[in-house]
Design a protein around this nucleic acid. Sequence first.
RNA 1: GGGGGCGUAGCUCAAUUGGCUAGAGCAUCGGAUUGUCGAUCCGAAGGUUGCGGGUUCGACCCCCGUCGCCCUCGCCA
Length: 595
Amino acid sequence: MFTLKRTHTCGALRAADAGATVNLNGWVEARRDHGGVLFIDLRDRYGKTQVVFKPGQTSGPLMEQAMLLRAEWVVAIRGSVRARPAEAVKKGVETGEIEVEALQLEILNESKVPPFEVTEHVDVSDEIRLKYRYLDMRRKPMQRNMMTRHRIIAAFRESMDQQGFLDLDTPILIKNTPGGARNFLVPSRLHEGQFFALAESPQIFKQLFQVAGMDRYFQVCKCFRDEDLRADRQPEFTQFDLEMSFVDEGDVQAAVEHAVSNVFKKVLGVELKRPFPKMTYAEAMDKYGSDKPDIRFGMHLVDVSELAKASAFRVFSEAISTGGVVKGICVAGGGTMSRKEIDDLTTYVKGNGAKGLVWLKAEAGSLGGSSAKNFKPEELAALREKMGAKDGDMLFFVADERGRCKVALGGLRTHLGAKLKLIKEGTWEPFWVVEFPMFEEGPEGKPQAKHHVFTSPKPEDLQFLETEPLKVRARAYDLVLNGVELGGGSIRIHRKDVQGRVLAVIGLQESDIREKFGFMLDAFDFGAPPHGGIALGVDRFVMLLLGLDTIRDVIPYPKTQKGQCLMQNAPSGIIPRQLDELHIALKLPPLEKKT
RNA sequence: GGGGGCGUAGCUCAAUUGGCUAGAGCAUCGGAUUGUCGAUCCGAAGGUUGCGGGUUCGACCCCCGUCGCCCUCGCCA
């Protein structure tokens, strides 16, 4: 029986409702039995309301029924709203001024004792949370995360609609095109021996929308990548995806800024300054050692290679003579660091590929520390000057091959920013990283696309395409916020000849190009407009706005680091008949390989 | 595939150098309790120390293997 359908949610009632007779539906979160009076906290996603059963006012049978209630039972209650006695008002709770005096109770469902207490007050391991995700999501933090996720997506959609974008979907089952992220494969029953891939992004389809004249497409879409997981990477994740025609970089960026700003305004009440600033890739790497720097604190990387070249300190001079660089950072007030802390930092940079960490303390108008003896006094003075150090500061240097030096020192900068709490929390400084290189050096020195093969080179760099590909800059842009890459996009190639040249640079044979991208190039034969777009990671976006450090907490049903669903126990084997239908034979590695 | 951390009661954790009956808080169950709200008080029950092997007089602790969760490198255009 379910007759007492709710008239109010568990978060709705206020002092002004006193006297009303209402129905509430929800879960029993807590039960406080005082021998006479019995309190029940009733919970739904809107809040909690205290229900009270009082001897004298509550009938005997109803009291008996109420005594049965346990945590997580689902009930419907009819009762009258009462203002609480002044001394019993619960401050800081929206429904704290009232309670509902029960008149009637329907037990809609009982519950086993849950594996963990369904309250935000207890810590539960990820493993247990994922196994019982439906219980985890009953708790306030996950409810908040899911509601925020919804509001972010809604605000994004609202902006897209306002700007005239069409919400169109694209296939999940698509052609397998090796290269880039590994695809999940789906065998085709109707075509024996053939496979679909799950879309790793709608990239090609959204570009073909532009050829189709569907100017201004967007989608909130699932993408699938069969790669190893991280705190911010799941095998299936969600993107804000958009593409527009007859545009340049500025048009795409403006559209995204409108949407991102709307999200911040609607969800956080924060007005972002537009347009977002831009930083070139070269500057990001030079000053921060990262293509997604956290610019909420300074501590820039300083190149001291000129000083290092002639240095008596061989670690420095040899790094330069072998073609490397020496860079440093200045930690304001870091002079008080202990030897142990410095050792930990050394371990940290070594983990990022550096050979070691040189440290010098700014003190007594010069530089000290165990490495200081390797330098002449005037060298120390010059270093101090170049690094802008004051007494009490700590200087760290990494001498290494250019790329490794930036990565190691950039990593150290980020690490120190968090460790020393240099980051201004609650500040939002989104910006664009632009002028990415078109290619990067792949294995065996072969150029490979840094963004993707449909990214347009800058026209003025086209002349180097075949001769010095690594020098070519792309019309690509990444949106970076608080050290997180929120997404990236580009102006695409819309001319078949240029597309062919780019594919050739990365070493694709004519036949490969036909097989993989033939339909795309064919489409370009029929009048492709100039176009461009971007994709943003929804999960990362939500994580960032909520100040969390894993996207698992903003995805309703995420996978573990081994890519499994602990609730369903997926993936799992299939029965022989299913394999037969697909004409698939398993070839498993031997179970045990013991010698 | 590599490196690291963790795995003890339903949950979160403790257990000295390898040593006595493996403990605590919460949850659960029973009792008490008429204004609590993460109620309180009294009591009870609850353990294959992830699993398998080894070393030892003796293993939660040491060794080998294995499974799981997490972080990370590779990888993720």
